[in-house]
């Protein structure tokens, strides 16, 4: 799976979890940009990503995400 496919899936999950009608993906998206992204929806977002891609992040990995691009990099590394 290439990076573009991963970002496509992550965008879909974000629309669902954050209840967005549309979202233009960029690596720089973060909780500061998306209003519905709070500590609770963040947890559901991470869990939804894990479920979709079939692995689990460590606490250290989650703590290292400051924007969506970091998360996508981590997914790419996990499923490589």
């Amino acid at each position: 799976m290439d990076r573009q496919e991963i970002t496509g899936i992550v965008t879909e999950i974000m629309c669902d979890v954050f209840d967005l009608d549309e979202l233009e993906y960029s690596d720089g998206l973060s909780a500061e940009v998306i209003e519905e992204w709070d500590s609770l929806s963040h947890i559901r977002f991470i869990v939804a990503v894990e479920k979709r891609f079939g692995f689990r992040f460590s606490s250290a990995e989650i703590e290292g995400f400051s924007k969506v691009g970091d998360l996508v990099d981590s997914i790419a590394a996990h499923i490589a």
């Binding site: 500590s39 947890i43 559901r44 869990v47 689990r56 606490s59 989650i62």
Partner: peptide, 14 residues
């Protein structure tokens, strides 16, 4: 356990 440590959620999101 991870959700408990990270966020003090008492059980899995599911």
């Amino acid at each position: 356990a991870r959700l408990w440590h990270d966020a003090k959620l008492p059980f899995a999101v599911e």
